[in-house]
Nucleic acid binder design. Structure first.
Lengths: 193, 193
DNA sequence: CAGTTATTAAACTATATGTTGATTATAATG
DNA sequence: CATTATAATCAACATATAGTTTAATAACTG
């Protein structure tokens, strides 16, 4: 991903800029956040921003991608050590839910962010990529146009559920959400016949 | 809604500005569209834009709201003439699907618009407002935290399904989507017990 | 330590924003 | 049709942000 190891100053700068943006997104709409806002908050020169990012959408995009990469690598780690054959649930849901509950603030911020549906789309792809195969196998589903509608329904549905999950404080546990998601997925899969 | 009847010039101007924005959104990201872009395309003076809207997000917001008002009034009309008691489906789905298929271009544009999740959220609220009561009654569901997750799942799921629906050309018929949506809703409602 | 490289500060151009005041064009009304 | 009201235009202006560039300084790497 990153070319081995970046200069410590670069790591520091990028971290400060990302923290500053996350802070600002809690305070106002992303669309109203300027490069100057970010560098002021990070206490860095404005020019420094342009050494690493092209504009505010670029840094947002990179934050989103990192989150998704983190989730994906958690899924991969979990898959290695877990036996999926006799499992009744969809295995990827657990690491996803655990990541979200551990990083609730930033996930809530990105999911509800009015500036961009990118994160929702990316998250949906991640869920699809990691869940569709196993559902297809369990329910003996073959590829069809109709089933594409179904998978779009279910992957978006999971996102909607997580969105609601993030609204309540204190949040329900990851285990609870995994069980509920599994259940809803299983039942709605009956519609496939 | 609007104070009786606007000046014909105002109606014309607003229409031109909205058409121009819709065109531009097909061509590039909303975030890259400026007021000047819109007025150039509409062949109007830039100052004229500010007589009606505060900025590009304002006009987008108003376009979104009009679409949703149109859908809502279609639902209301349909509800009046349809007997809902012995109906097995969720009645609001039909007018929603019919509106979307009739206005596929603008709906696709707004649903996929990377600039704002507002439309998705508003559409979700509309679906929730018009569908949740009847589902609750049919399945004898009482209000609970758990069921809020479920309703968030199902309303987002429907949006995901419609999103997929809008991707294929030629689009499936409204009837087909209503039947599928109804079915998936019904089966996933079993998870409520 | 020596060489490399990131950050800074300042300046600069270009462009978008939002507003204002005077003028012209168009619509509503009796 | 003539009058009145008001919308749209045009030009100009102040402000803000976006990007880029330069030389000087600071910090890191090996």
């Amino acid at each position: 991903m990153e070319n081995i190891k970046e200069d410590r100053r670069i790591r520091r700068t990028k971290k400060l800029l990302k923290q500053a943006l996350a802070q600002l997104m809690d305070e106002k709409d992303f669309k109203d956040i300027t490069v100057k806002d970010i560098t002021d908050r990070a206490d860095l020169n404005r020019g420094t921003f342009y050494l690493h990012y092209t504009d505010t959408y670029d840094i947002l995009n990179k934050i989103e991608n990192e989150i998704l990469e983190n989730i994906q690598s958690m899924i991969n780690q979990d898959m290695e050590k877990t036996d999926t054959t006799n499992n009744t649930s969809v295995p990827a849901l657990k690491p996803i839910a655990e990541y979200i509950v551990e990083n609730a603030d930033i996930c809530r911020c990105l999911i509800n962010n009015k500036a961009s549906v990118d994160f929702l789309d990316k998250l949906q792809s991640l869920i699809y990529d990691n869940c569709s195969d196993i559902i297809k196998r369990r329910h003996n589903v073959k590829d069809s146009r109709r089933n594409e509608y179904y998978f779009s329904f279910i992957t978006f549905g999971i996102i909607g559920m997580m969105k609601k999950w993030l609204e309540f404080k204190p949040m329900a546990s990851a285990e609870e959400m995994v069980i509920l998601a599994d259940q809803v997925m299983k039942y709605s899969a009956s519609a496939l016949k």
